[in-house]
Amino acid sequence: MLAIKNVFNKFFEIVGENVLSKLEGIGSFATHFFSIMYWTFKSPYRIKLFIDQLYFIGNKSLFIVALTSLFSGMVITYQTYIGMKVMGAYTLVGPIVVLTIAKELAPVFSAIIVTGRCGAAMAAEIGTMKVTEQIDALEVMGISSRQYLGVPRVWATMVALPLLNLVFLFVANVGSWFVGVELLGIEEAKYYAKLKEFVDFNVLLEGLIKAGVFGYIVGLIGTYHGFKVQGGAEGVGKGTNAAVVWGMIVILILDYFLTSLLVRLLYDYGV
């Protein structure tokens, strides 16, 4: 009887510890979020740091976004063509591909690429500054480290991602056009006519809004895991890893909820 009681006690102890630790994590992330919002609207405004970060994020991800988008556009066009040809509706390949890319692939892929390249870099850079007391040095000088390091990175990612999203969309469509029209022989006039019929500004807007929200989240998660780093090099490694893993998970989960919200706001589908 005592043994069973001990097992139950241990079980609830472990569950309780895990729940508390998760709640603590949520609390500290919320604090980070509010801190970034608070310092955003307090002077001095770090415009130069924001531009530096915007350049860093955009420049660092531009080539890989362009390359990924080109081949994504090409392969999706190819697969869609095979499927649609069976039903004799291959002229719909253009709008299907563009809708898929503009609404889903461009914002999600761009966000995942930026998470892998820049979210990780943010966590590693801030984490290294933390373990080498550079963040303490800022605080001792009377400078808020969240304002100096966090705010420019979060907002720069939020602005950079919609821009990268546009690059993704443009290059992916070039790839789609090349495979659809030049390689698979869809008539160009029909390809464009169907695009005009099905694609409107709201499609572009949906992708841009998603990219902006994802950008803010990627920046927030990257900087959060940087500031949270403890210990030495191992801590920096863990923080960087957590920034990438959590960044990707949150983007994919958030995508569903954002989609269902934006569909209601932007279109009249009756869903």
């Binding site: 290294t128 500054m129 080498t132 007391e133 550079q134 303490d136 040095a137 605080e139 001792v140 000088m141 009377g142 400078i143 808020s144």
Partner: peptide
Amino acid sequence: LRKFRKRFGMLFQYAALFDSLTTYENIAFP
């Protein structure tokens, strides 16, 4: 507190220099 801390200087155990900034930029920072 932020204003108050400007009345302090601190030398950290490992100096805590900003590693992306030069000597000039580090000293000029404050």
